[in-house]
Design a protein around this nucleic acid. Structure first.
Lengths: 199, 199, 199, 199
DNA sequence: GATGAATGAGAATTCATTCAT
DNA sequence: AATGAATGAATTCTCATTCAT
C-alpha cells in the first residue's frame, strides 16, 4: 500500500537521479516520470513545474544533512576535532547520497541558478560553521591568527568540493570518507616542510 | 576588410559571451549570431553545431592560457616560486577573460560534459604541472614528503577554483590577483599554528 | 439530508456559474466540482461529460422560462400588450438569472454549437410566439400588414439581445426591466417622425 | 514568387477561416498551419502567439471596413439615406467576407474577450456613427426627438446583428444585402400601423 | 454512491538546423 | 560565402475522464 508521501518522495528521488545523470536542462519530465514509474501528468499533482522538482529535492536533503553537520560539530571539543568531524560527516553524507552530491556540485557552479535559495542558504550556514570553528581554534591557540578568514573558508570549501568532484567523476570507485583525515592534515599543516629550519 | 579567421573568432567570442551569461542550454544560436553580427546560418558555415562552438571556444583559450602557465613556471627556480607564479598567472588570465573563467567553472562541474575532451586535457596538463612542482619541491626539501600527492593536487585546484568562483559571483568587484600570495601562503603553511609548541 | 436531485441541480447551477464566468472552454471540471462542493469524479455520476453539463443547464432553464413566457403572453388581450408582456418578462427572467443570461447570449452566437438543440428549440418556440403575436396584431389592425415577418422577428430578437448584452457588459449596473417599455415603443413606432407630414 | 507579406496574410486568412469554423479555443495552431500550407513553427515567425492571430485578423479587417462605412455615409445627404447606406454597406462587406462576419459575431458576444481592444474600438466608432446620423435626422425633422438615443443604437445594432447571424446560420444561402432596405424601413417606421387612427 | 489520485492524449511554443536565394 | 525564412521534432504543461478504494 502506497500513500502520497511515498509517491511524492519517489518522484523526488527519481528527479534527483535524472537531474544528476543528465543535468537539469537535459532532463525531461518524461524521463523523470518513467524513472518514478508514474505518468507525466502525475508529477504535476505534486509539483508546480520542473523547477520545483529541483528546488524541493534540495530543500529536503539540505535540511537533513545540515542537521548532521551541526550535530557532529557540537559533539567535539577542540577546533581541530570539530573540523575533522565536519569534513568526515560531509564526506559520509555525500558518499551516501551520490545523486545529491552530483547535483550539489553542479548547481553551486551553474550559472543558471535554479535552486538558488536553497543552495545559498546552505552555503551561508556552512560558511558560518567554518568561521566559528576557525575562530574557536584561534582562541584555543590551535590556529594561526594572521589569516584572511574569508580566504580560509574558500580554501577549505574548495578543497572539499574538488575532492568530492573527483570522487564523483571516478564513478565513486573508492572510499570518499578515507580522504577526510589526510585532507584535514593538509588544511592544518599545508604542504610546506616546516621542519626544514631544524635540519 | 574582414577575412574568415576574423569572422570565425568573432563568432567564437560571441558564443563564449553568450554561454557565460546564460549557460549552454539557455543560449540560442540566434543570440550568438546576433551578438556576433552575423546571420544564424552563417554560424553553420564555420561550426558543425552548437556544441562545437563550446568545444572550439575552449580549445582556443586553453592552448593560449596553458602556454602562459608553462612560461611563467619555467621562469622560476624554486618550487615555491613556481607555484606562486602559476597561481598568480592563473588569476591574471582568468581575471582578464571573465567569460572564459565563467565557462570553465561551469563546464568543469557540469554533468553534461560537452567540452569534455578539452577540459579533461587541460585539467590533466594542469595536474601534471602541479605534480612536477610539488615533486621538485620535495626534492628541494621545501615540501613535505609525507603527502598523498593526488590529494594535494585536488586541494590546490579546489582552492583556486573556489577563489575564482567567489570572485565571479561577486561580479568581479575586487582584484582577483591579490588573492594569489595569501593563497600560496595557506597552501604552504596551512591554517595550523606551528609555533604553538615553542610558545 | 440531501437527495440526488439536489446534488444534480447543485452541480448544474455551479456549472452555469462557472461557464458564465469563464466561457465553456476555459472552464474546467475541477472548477465546477469545487464550486458545487463535490469531487471531480462525482460529476460523472450525473453527467456523461462536460458538454452535457451545458446542455442540461439550458434544458432546465429554458423549460421554466418558456413557461413564464407563455403564461405572460396568454394573460394579455391585445397584441401590443402581449408583446409588451413578453419583452418585460424576458428582461425580468434574464435579470433574475444572470448566469443563464450570459450563457444564452454567448451560446446563441458561438460557432461551437454545444447546446445547439436546446438553443434551437427554444429559439424556434420564441420565434413562433412572436409570429403569433404579430399575426394577431395584424388581424387586430394594430400592426402593419406589409411586413416581411421573418425580418420582423429578427429585428425584435436582435434588439432584445443587444439590450441584454449591453446590460450584461455593464455588469448589471442598471435596471434591465426598465428598458422594456421604451423598447416596445421603438419596435412599434420606429424612429421615424411620422407626424412630419402633419406639421 | 511569394514575399513575406503574402505569407503573413495567407496565415492570417487561414487563421480567420479556422477560427470562424471551430471557434478560437477549438482551433489549433496545427490546423491553421495546415490550412495556410506552412509548418507550425512558421506561424511564430510572424505572430507572437495564437491570440495575436485573432487580434491581427480583426485589426486588418476592421480598419478597411470602417473606412468603407465612413465613405458610404459621407456620400449621402439626408439622415435616412445615410442610415440606408451604412446598413447596406455593412451587409455588403460582411457578405463579402463571411469568415470575418462569423468571427465578429462570435467575438462581440463571447465572454472571453480576446480581440477585445479591436472590437471595442470598432464598436465605439460604429456607435458614434449611428449617433451622428440619428442626431442629424432629428435636426432635419426626419427622426423623432423623444428617443432614448442609447436604446436606439442598441436596437439598430441588435437588429443588424441578428439579421447577419441568421444569414450566417443559413450558410449564406440567400442574399444578405437584400435585407437592407426592408430593415431600414422597419427601423424607421416600426411595426405599428400608424394609419389606424385614420381608419 | 462518492472520492480524488492517476492517467495520457493533446496543445502551444521553442529552437537547432537546413537550404533556396 | 552569407543570409534568414522555414521546418518540425521535442518539450512542458493542462485537464477531461477513469477507476480503485
Amino acid at each position: 500500500m502506497e500513500n502520497n508521501t511515498d509517491k511524492k518522495s519517489r518522484i523526488l528521488q527519481a528527479a534527483g537521479q535524472v537531474f544528476a545523470q543528465n543535468g537539469f536542462s537535459q532532463s525531461t519530465i518524461a524521463m523523470i516520470a518513467k524513472n518514478a514509474g508514474v505518468a507525466d501528468g502525475t508529477i504535476y499533482l505534486y509539483f508546480k513545474n520542473k523547477e520545483e522538482l529541483l528546488t524541493r529535492f534540495f530543500e529536503n536533503k539540505m535540511r537533513l544533512i545540515f542537521d548532521r553537520f551541526l550535530e557532529t560539530v557540537s559533539g567535539a571539543n577542540s577546533a581541530e576535532e570539530k573540523l575533522r568531524n565536519l569534513i568526515r560527516t560531509h564526506f559520509v553524507e555525500f558518499q551516501k547520497d551520490k545523486d545529491m552530491a552530483v547535483l550539489y556540485q553542479v548547481e553551486t557552479h551553474s550559472n543558471v541558478r535554479l535552486a538558488e535559495d536553497q543552495i545559498r542558504e546552505m552555503s551561508k550556514m556552512y560558511m558560518d560553521l567554518i568561521s566559528l570553528i576557525v575562530e574557536q581554534g584561534q582562541e584555543q591557540g590551535l590556529i594561526r591568527k594572521d589569516l584572511y578568514l574569508s580566504l580560509v573558508k574558500r580554501m577549505i570549501i574548495g578543497s572539499l568540493d574538488e575532492v568530492i568532484n573527483t570522487w564523483i567523476h571516478s564513478e565513486g570507485k573508492y572510499d570518499l570518507v578515507s580522504m577526510a583525515d589526510p585532507l584535514v592534515d593538509l588544511i592544518l599543516n599545508g604542504i610546506g616542510n616546516h621542519l626544514r629550519s631544524d635540519a
